[in-house]
Computed example of a mutant assay.
Amino acid sequence: MNNFRCAIASGMLLCALAFVPASAQMRPDPNQPDMVVSAAQRQAVIDAMIKEMHRSYVFPEQAKKVEAVIRQHQKKGDYDSITSAEKLSTTLTEHVFAQTRDKHLRLFYSAQPIPEEPKDKKPSVEEHEQQLAGMRSQNFGVERVERLPFNIGYLDLRAFAPAKDAADTLAAAMTLLAHTDALIIDLRKNGGGDPATVTLLASYLLDERTHMTDIYFREGERTEQMWSSDVVPGTRFGQKKDVYVLTSKYTFSAAEDFSYALKGLKRITLVGETTGGGAHPGDVMRLNQNFAMFVPNGRSLGPVTKANWEGVGVAPDVSVTAEDAFKTAQIAILNKLAANEKSPGKVERIKTRIAKVNSENTAGTMAR
């Protein structure tokens, strides 16, 4: 889950689409030029990183431990030979992760200067339009909507774009799927996004306002409750029909929030692989003109479990490879339809469809 600002210039891919998740896009452009860093510059980056962690990281005690680890590496001279900006960012990220096991906590190098902006600065009209154009080019994360044989709905969602921007597109998709008899939501390539969109999509699958999750923020020690909505644009799918959610090890952040919350509510059946394990929302913080850091400033908590999926992921109900998840979900739905069907002729047609799905090459489903 991310609530980060588009804070880094064009050298960082995350600025092209503000909603694109940390796991998928918060990486430097692989084609950007590297930069030589001096000992003084290296020291400045390390000091700024540690200062920012003490100021913002959701676990203050871990920030202290990270500083101790990093200072120990410095004393041993482990950074002395690093003159590459790229190498410095990856090495520091590895050392921080070794202590925290936090998959959102990352350091980044940008060849393009990172502008110094107030934390609460809103994008200009031009910047907002650029972000919207980028989101529109990816259809606000909605990759594919389909009605499969025997009235099975299928939604391939690649990102949870900001709710205010994605609402109409999600409403159109869910309205098209509202009258299907069962639904498959494919999150195998979804790396996260806006927690508000998690509750928006969940609202189509629930009949009444439901407490989904809590997000604790270090600043102000406040907790924000996330609830599904009583009213949705378009047509609600409802709570009585089966929903299968497909996951992979790449399913991350807000996509995990959706999976974790609805699994806890026993509203969905998860099929696929254990997810990536990132449960800490945060922000991109500028360290200097060429380095920035994504710092988690909050953590997600299940309203009942008071826990989350950080570092462990969300385990599926039906464990299969990501490539087989689409096939497995379809067959489960079809078998249930056949068991409840009274017409012998239709039962035979369903069985024929099951055989066809079983024989299909599943490798292509992840490549779509």
Rank of each mutant, 00 (worst) to 15 (best):
I8E: 10
A16D: 12
A16H: 11
F19A: 14
F19P: 10
V20R: 11
S23F: 13
M35D: 08
Q41P: 11
I46W: 04
Y57C: 13
P60D: 12
I70Y: 02
R71M: 13
Q72H: 06
H73Y: 04
D78Y: 00
D78L: 09
D80H: 00
E94K: 02
R106L: 14
L107D: 12
Y109I: 13
P113S: 11
Q131N: 07
Q131H: 02
L132D: 11
Q138R: 12
E146C: 07
L148C: 05
P149T: 15
P149A: 15
D156W: 07
F160K: 06
A161E: 11
A161F: 06
A171M: 10
A171S: 11
M174F: 09
A178C: 13
D181F: 07
I184K: 01
D194R: 00
P195H: 00
P195L: 08
Y204K: 01
L205H: 01
T210I: 15
H211I: 10
R222P: 05
D230K: 08
T235W: 01
Y244N: 08
K249A: 15
Y250S: 08
A255W: 01
E256D: 08
L265M: 13
L270T: 05
V271Q: 12
T274S: 14
G278S: 10
A279T: 05
G282F: 09
N288W: 11
N290A: 13
A292Q: 08
V295K: 04
P303L: 14
V304R: 03
V312F: 07
P316L: 08
P316I: 09
D317F: 06
V318G: 02
A322M: 12
D324L: 15
K327T: 04
T328H: 07
Q330T: 08
I331S: 01
A339I: 03
A339Y: 04
K342G: 01
P344Q: 05
E348Y: 06
I350E: 04
T365F: 12
M366P: 01
A367T: 04
R368Q: 06
